[in-house]
Simulated assay, not measured.
Amino acid sequence: MSDPVLTHPSIPPSSNAGSDDALWCMHVTGMDDVHPAPDRATAQLWAAQWTIFWHRRNPVPHYHDPLMNFTVARWPWDAETHAASLAASIADNTFPVDPLAAHASTPSDQSAARAEGRREERQHILSEARRSLRLIRGCLECNADDERKWANTIRWLEALA
């Protein structure tokens, strides 16, 4: 059965399965670029990895960003050009860290990391507020109202931290 997300629409469903003699590539629409792959499974893996990587990198695309889709397609040229470009394509499309594995991490791991990041951010803000209070207390021209406001802010920040 055809995988509509990872298979280029120009490939008929009957030709997707079991054709080991076909040359495969990852087609990047938007850039209209093709990258030869050793086999169809590798092309599907690359397409999935690049899709995850691209959409995590640009979750809300800017209007000038290209619309990128990564699909599997048959190699459009001859076997010689496929073989000549294959080594460079493997080097260019092999991820040092699999973005699919990062995407599949459990939500609790992600939420714990976000909570830790927020806690560190609050600690940083609190330390900056304490530093500002020390500067205000050291200032000869400051008045008691400024000091009271900073002390209230620090108490509020400490309650958050």
Rank of each mutant, 00 (worst) to 15 (best):
P9G: 04
P13D: 07
A144M: 14
T7Y: 02
L86H: 06
R56M: 11
A161H: 13
D32Q: 11
D109M: 06
G138R: 10
K149P: 00
L45Y: 12
R137I: 02
V5Q: 08
S10P: 01
P59M: 02
S2C: 04
P66R: 06
E141R: 13
A88Y: 14
R74V: 04
T94C: 13
Q49V: 07
S89Q: 03
A73C: 06
H103Y: 15
E121M: 09
I154R: 01
A101E: 12
H8E: 01
N152R: 09
D33A: 11
D98A: 06
S10A: 13
E116M: 05
L135M: 03
K149H: 13
A91N: 11
W24A: 07
L100M: 11
A101Q: 10
A22G: 01
V72E: 05
T29G: 04
N143M: 06
H103C: 12
I136G: 00
S132N: 08
H103L: 07
P38N: 04
P12N: 03
R122P: 02
D33Q: 15
R122G: 03
E120P: 06
A37N: 07
C139I: 01
D78K: 09
S127Y: 02
L135A: 04
L86N: 03
W50I: 02
T29I: 09
E120S: 09
L140P: 14
L133P: 01
L45C: 06
W150T: 03
S111F: 15
I136L: 06
S19V: 08
A17M: 12
E116R: 10
V5S: 09
V97F: 10
S132H: 03
R130Q: 13
M1N: 09
T29Y: 07
H64M: 13
D78N: 15
A115P: 00
R40D: 04
A144T: 15
L45R: 15
G18K: 00
S132C: 01
W77L: 14
C25Y: 06
T71E: 12
D3T: 03
W77D: 01
N58W: 10
A161R: 09
N16Y: 08
L67D: 14
A41N: 08
Y63A: 12
I154D: 03
H64E: 13
V60T: 13
L135W: 02
A113V: 04
S85N: 11
R40I: 06
G117D: 08
S89N: 05
N93L: 14
V72W: 01
V60L: 10
A17K: 09
D146G: 01
A102P: 03
M68K: 04
N143E: 11
H103A: 12
D33V: 12
N143D: 15
E147S: 11
I125P: 01
N152A: 13
R57A: 15
R56W: 14
R130H: 02
P59D: 08
A83F: 15
L86K: 04
M31D: 10
P76H: 02
T94D: 10
D92C: 07
Q110E: 05
T81N: 15
L126H: 04
E147L: 07
R122T: 05
R148P: 03
S127L: 07
D78W: 10
S15W: 12
A83R: 13
D109F: 08
L23Q: 05
T106L: 10
W150S: 12
W46K: 05
A129T: 01
E80L: 12
A91S: 14
S85Y: 05
H82G: 01
A79P: 10
L133C: 03
W46I: 15
D145H: 15
